[in-house]
Design a protein around this nucleic acid. Sequence first.
DNA 1: GCAAGGTC
Length: 908
Amino acid sequence: MNVLNVAEKPSVAKSVSAILSRNQGLRVREGRSRYNKIFEFNYTIRGQPCHMLFTSVTGHLMELEFQDRYRKWHSCDPADLYHAPINKSVPEDKKDIKRTLEEEARRCQWLVLWLDCDREGENIAFEVVDVCTAANPHLTIKRARFSALIDRELHQAVQNLVDPNKWFADAVDCRQEIDLRIGASFTRFQTMLMKDAFIIDTATDDRNLVLSYGPCQFPTLGFVVERYWEIQAHEPEEFWSINCSHRSDEGTANFNWMRGHLFDYTCAVIIYEMCIEEPTATVTNVRQQEKLKYPPHPLNTIELEKRASRYFRMSSEHTMKVAEELYQAGFISYPRTETDSFSSRTDLHTIVREQQGHPEWGVYAQRLLDPEAGLWRHPRGGGHDDNAHPPIHPTKFSPGESGWSQDHRKLYELVVRHFLACVSKPAVGAETTVEIDIAGELFSACGRVILEKNYLDVYQFESWGGSMIPTYTVGQQFIPTSLTLDSGVTRPPPLLSEADLLSCMDKEGIGTDATMHDHIKKLLDRFYATKDASTRFTPTNLGEALVMGYDDMGYKLWKPYLRAGMERDMKSISEGTKSKVEVLANILQQMKACFLDARLNKVKLLEAMAIFFERSNRSGSDELHATGEVVRRCGLCQESDMVLRKNRDGHFMVGCLGFPQCRNAVWLPGSVSEAVVTTNICNFCTPGPVYLIQFKFRQLEIPPNYSANHLGCIGGCDQILTELTEICGTGSRMQARNRGPTAPTSNVHNTNPRQGVCMNCQETGHSSHDCPLHSRNVRHHGTSQHSGEASVSCSSCGTPCLLRTANTANNRGRKFYSCQSQECNFFVWEDSLSNGTGGRNVTRSNSIPAASNPRRGGRAPRGRGGRNGSRTTNMTFVSATGEPISGRRCFVCGDPSHFANVCPNRGV
DNA sequence: GCAAGGTC
């Protein structure tokens, strides 16, 4: 009997053939496809002697496509793509594999499928069945189920052949069809909508620009944009903490306040003054513990990508390319695996033994194998298993090949060191924690001594810092060397790094381990996001506008929910609890409704895009370009007229006809229901003539003391119009962004210097920080705001600082600079720059000479240890500039006659 | 010119 065996990839065909034939009588011949060889050997299945022909495909053999009539973008309405007929067929570049299968199938009686044992593998199995049975309808179809390419497993699989699982294959058919229909319809719709309407200045040729939508790429973009918005919405808040250090002969211990930090300055100051009053520290607890730092789990694809990004700043896409090449050359195992635990049958020692000769880690490998060294430990698994591939590990020793690039070397080194680390004992450290009490406040310091480095000796990508602190005993008392009240401001989270992005995708089930890097690369290719040198992602204007547009519609198409829901349905199909037909009909119906609704609301997308991009003249139907009644000559460009217009959403504005070259515009109150230009001319505004406008306001939207009818002037003289603009707001787009749970709540967003006009109200003639609407919002929201351009550079990292205004109880209106860098905490009060007391970690501590303290003698002892009435201290209190501070004053009001805790102004 | 999933 002739048996045709088909694997998912050439490497599996080769391995299985070698194992089943035990390399006895194994022959190889070429197939029609260059990569997919045919192996031949004899084998006995359940007593029946068989001649085995073993070949392979390369992943999916077929592709899903719309029928020809629907392929051209303008051939149909994109909404038709939800029901347009589709074909599954073998594409041109797979035709030679198809021919091999057909030819071999004709000679065989049985077809045994050796595809990977996951849903995609099962689907590929049915593609192979379709091709083979078309050539030979009499074939008996069987499936081999195996979970690893190991002797026993494979012999068992071939002796216990089963039927292929149609449910698994159905789930994939369903996913493919949904992805195609949704992706094609939304991509065509949004590309055709935007490309002609705006001047989208990306690096690519305009004609090649595609604004793609996909159920994986869009949620990936969503993660990037969401984090970006979170950063923009962040409002820095000051906090205060008390820190204590103690220097002795043995060294210095830095004690942290166990309260962490307080946001209330007065409260922090009062506690601080209590500590200054009775500064003697008493050691209350000394704890010693052994701590272990464990090596990482065995390496799977996502971890490989994350670690290569973190350690070498290699992109996930490049990592997979290099890993694939190392795999093809036989140096590492299959790089696309979810598995992060080794099977108990894997011979780990042999893999280590091969590495003994390496000049850098060979000695470590020898130590691992030496039972006396006691370094070996069976690796801990991370609980993931794809039942097809082992964790990524070295398969062949190499001291470095001549053809390798630096990246090949680095990645091979990572795989080897990671493997050696996995089978090593954890690092051991001894940690000492000392707690002290100063005037009832608790502080703690921690020191660590590393006792055994173990796996850290070989895994140099990780470190475990050691720090020494002096020896303390419970009950011991000392006077701190310094006791300071330090300030800081809260910082926004950093932009997402590539490793963060992979984690988000992994957690939400976006993409598979083999495709995640593709989706990330797609964001860059489509100009939706950029990546900086430290692998952090920022959305581009295009990326942000698209997400903003769909968000404004109320659709969460950029969130992972859609994919997660689909994934649940696919699971139900593969378990047989739902049918493919049922799920397809349901999802496609929902998505078509969503598509049609999105198209009805396309104005939201256009508005979001208009925030970032200039309108293009190619778009003739845009009512923003419709000519309105002339109000006056434009004072800015002095070339065009300014005309009265009504926006799509019903708001009125007076804009320059020279748009987009001239962006001069006056936005009118949102409460205007009608506006007509009259022939009356303003007597005050110049250059004239400025025609007056007859306004009608919606009565319910204006205060009762204003009239609903008003003959007004937009030239600047009209107080009533100004007031109503302040009260009601305008139809300006940027105003509309400050709402909703995902929209930034801060006007920080509005200081985005992307345009030449005020980002707050879109008017020209001022910038956002002196925008009249802006100051109104400051008062209204009571939040800290960006309030100026950078004029100070950070003394820590050199990045320009932003000047901001604090709005906390004690520092309302006070200006401070904070570093723009995500990594830096630099903060300084503006006024301290002139009086020389500033700097981050401003030392607000004062010395307490007894003579200068008018209240000292009058206070009763507080009964805690360490206080004896006389205060000779070796504490030093200095300003940040290093000058000794003398004298005392209340921190709340500055009065030298009392302390803050009894200040009459406390709490004001 | 469109998706996402396999793979060389």
